[in-house]
Design a protein around this nucleic acid. Structure first.
Length: 689
DNA sequence: GAAGAGAGCGCC
DNA sequence: AAAGGGCGCTCTCTTC
């Protein structure tokens, strides 16, 4: 070898140069005639045609490019199906074709590329590398196809699905509070309607219809899409299939200017461009990465949980309760034993048996603690992810991250809902060989955001102390504390006055979310008078915040939407807002703004982590979980911490946020270093949680 | 037998 | 009359 003595990466580089040589030519080829290209659909199946495609794209002035892909999965069936919910193997995508609708000076160039022809993929890459806006409807499909083929995604992507969702935040609530009494049948009907519209209104055909545009395959869209799922791998693309693919690409390209105008009118374009669209790519990359479940641990857990459940269940049945999971049977039991006198009632009138209630009254009867235990153990019994049914072909689990899933703008996780995985169960997720899992979370960020958004200097000051609840407790309980203790550092104060500090937390969160004194009294287990006193002192200490939030709720109600930085959460009508709605509007500003800052940090880290061969595996509202090579874990954690803090400070320069790093047991995901929480849970389910 | 409502519990 | 916001998911129970 002539490369002797060279570093391996140089040898690799030289060799790749050699193979590139014949592709690189600096001589201009004859210019293409654009009029000749427009008005017809070009199917690209060989290298020569691909070169024409590239040339046309590079020599035309481009306004934007709409794209769409058609693909199927290696298997004919999903990994998992339950009711309407399906999970397909994200890592077994088999792409058929990709359509490009290139808008150039009012004319349209249309190409459909057969992606099964390997030699023309580099041509696709060159077009994707163009610094123009690419339009897609529901970017997950296109991004997954790019990454399956080893292609880089375009730099500028606008997802028409996400843009449409951004315009409807708040309009189709997932849960509406049970105040149906004053609305009657109309409310029920509109609720059903809302449900249906929430499900379907974001489909491309529905969206186009709302903008007065027509989709060429309006009626048969779903059917055609479905047909690709079982299309034989090597079969030719039919003219209909080619037309259909091109029609979707054309549709998003046509939709874009109208949709963008609508976003402008809603005042959300800037935030979409700057944060939400990049976050869509980031979230999709996180999905693509997925997480690794520890199969042995899952197995051990399921076996033990099953056994423990059986044992507790048997003891419960001795008291005459046949099904320990039945709230009805438990309520009946309590009623026949005359134990339910003090119990709060559910909306159906029977005694409520939530864990909080059961905990309060567990001394009344020995069956109550047993029930509590049984419920705890039941938790993950039928989780498809724990059973291994969601493992994709890369042996990892890829949750669905729904960007703007919540009406506040938050991202939601589905199948599995990894963000909602119980803290004690987190060690079910492990790091692959050679890598470690780390977590960095922004401490108490919503309090800081509330302080900054409403510009309450006192709260900002307290937040900047490092532990806002300690700083607050020192103020609220000033009269009860020895003067010297007011100077204690956070850690010491926290351990010495744990009770005061822990009282402050639900108090401030409650107040920010609009809790009443009744609720505070219930949560803190104090008298109403005492809660009122706490509430008053909070109001005296942070008058700017309290007044600001109060005003913002009313202004939002009158205006028709709450601001979420540059996004908006809309109201459904103009009638007087209920208390619940007022609270939701106020909350959206804080929760959503925190989410957007967090997205920005995630976007930066997506790129920054690449150099460290690290990657985000999960966002949890204010925490990022990542995998990194073990020998770099500490430095990567530091980077994540720095970026999270910096991003918050760029948006809110007055804040000095804190970000906590957890890398003490990188072999698995865990809550604050508790790597053996699962084993402890099995030993004593009630006390481990 | 499927589908939906309600309750309950998990997360932030 | 209840009494803090945002969610996903599973189970029970009821209904068609």
């Amino acid at each position: 070898m002539t490369h002797a003595g060279l570093a391996p990466e140089w040898i690799e580089r030289l060799e790749s140069l050699n193979t590139l040589g014949d592709q690189v030519s600096s001589l201009p080829s004859p210019a293409l005639s654009r009029p000749h290209l427009t008005g017809q659909l070009h199917l690209i199946e060989d290298s020569e045609a691909a070169e024409h495609f590239v040339q046309a794209c590079y020599e035309s002035p481009i306004a934007r490019i709409g794209i769409d892909t058609e693909f199927r999965y290696q298997e004919d069936y999903p990994l998992y199906r339950k009711g309407k919910k399906e999970v397909w193997d994200l890592r077994s995508i088999y792409p058929f074709c990709m359509a490009f609708a290139v808008v150039s000076e009012g004319s349209l160039l249309q190409f459909v590329i057969d992606l099964r022809v390997k030699e023309i993929r580099s041509a696709v890459q060159r077009v994707l590398d163009l610094p123009v806006t690419f339009l897609v409807h529901f970017a997950r499909s296109e991004l997954s196809v790019f990454w399956t083929l080893g292609l880089r995604e375009p730099e500028q992507i606008w997802d028409t699905y996400v843009a449409e969702r951004a315009q409807s935040l708040g309009l189709f609530p997932v849960r509406s509070p049970g105040d149906g009494a004053d609305e009657g049948a109309a409310a029920i009907r509109s609720e059903e309607e809302a449900e249906w519209r929430r499900e379907h209104r974001l489909g491309l055909d529905q969206v186009l219809q709302r903008y007065g545009l027509v989709h060429a395959f309006a009626g048969s869209k779903a059917e055609l899409q479905r047909s690709f799922l079982t299309k034989p791998f090597d079969s030719r693309l039919s003219p209909l299939e080619i037309e259909y693919c091109a029609a979707d690409a054309r549709a998003v390209a046509e939709l874009y200017p109208f949709q963008r105008l609508a976003c402008d009118q809603a005042g959300i374009t800037m935030m979409l461009d700057r944060v939400v669209m990049p976050w869509t790519v980031t979230a999709t990359e996180i999905e693509w990465t997925g997480v690794l479940y520890d199969r042995e641990r899952c197995q051990r857990f399921l076996e033990n949980a099953q056994r423990i459940r059986q044992q507790i269940g048997d003891r419960i049945r001795q008291f005459g309760i046949k099904n320990p999971g039945s709230p009805n049977q438990l309520a009946n039991f309590l009623q026949t034993q005359n134990l339910d006198r003090w119990f709060p009632r559910t909306s159906t009138g029977r005694p409520s048996t939530t864990d909080r209630v059961l905990k309060q009254y567990q001394h009344l009867h020995p069956v109550i603690p047993l029930i509590r235990n049984w419920r705890k153990v039941r938790q993950l019994a039928d989780d498809p992810a724990v059973h291994g049914r969601l493992d994709a072909s890369d042996r990892r689990v890829h949750p669905t991250l729904r960007v703007l899933g919540a009406d506040t703008g938050r991202t939601q996780s589905q199948l599995p809902n990894l963000m909602g995985l119980g803290r004690v169960f987190r060690p079910l997720i492990r790091a692959p060989e050679g890598l470690g899992i780390g977590e960095v979370d922004l401490a108490q960020i919503e309090v800081g955001i509330a302080a900054a958004v409403f510009r309450d200097d006192h709260l900002i000051e307290d937040f900047n102390q490092g532990d806002v609840y300690v700083a607050m407790a020192k103020r609220i309980f000033r009269d009860q504390l020895p003067p010297a203790d007011l100077d204690l550092d956070n850690q010491t104060f926290r351990s010495r006055h744990a009770k005061l500090r822990d009282q402050t937390k639900p108090l401030v969160l409650g107040i920010i979310y609009g809790q009443t004194t009744h609720g505070i009294a219930r949560d803190l287990k104090t008298s109403l008078a005492c809660a009122q006193e706490l509430w008053d002192s909070f109001r005296r200490l942070y008058p700017v915040l309290c007044a600001g939030m109060e005003q913002a709720r009313w202004q939002s109600a009158r205006r028709g939407y709450a601001y979420i930085s540059g996004l908006r959460r809309f109201r459904t009508g103009t009638r007087a807002a209920s208390n619940h709605e007022l609270r939701a509007l106020g909350n959206a500003t804080v929760q959503g703004t925190a989410a957007l800052v967090f997205f920005e940090a995630g976007n930066r880290l997506r790129r920054l982590l690449r150099a460290w061969e690290a990657r985000i595996i999960l966002p949890v509202h204010d925490a990022l979980i990542f995998e990194a090579p073990l020998d770099r874990l500490e430095r990567v954690a530091k980077l994540v911490q720095t970026v999270l803090i910096q991003t918050v400070q760029e948006r809110f320069p007055d804040l000095r946020p804190r970000a906590d790093v957890n890398i003490s047991h990188p072999e698995c995901w865990n809550d604050d270093g508790k790597h053996d929480s699962l084993e402890r849970f099995l030993e004593d389910p009630l006390h481990a949680t």
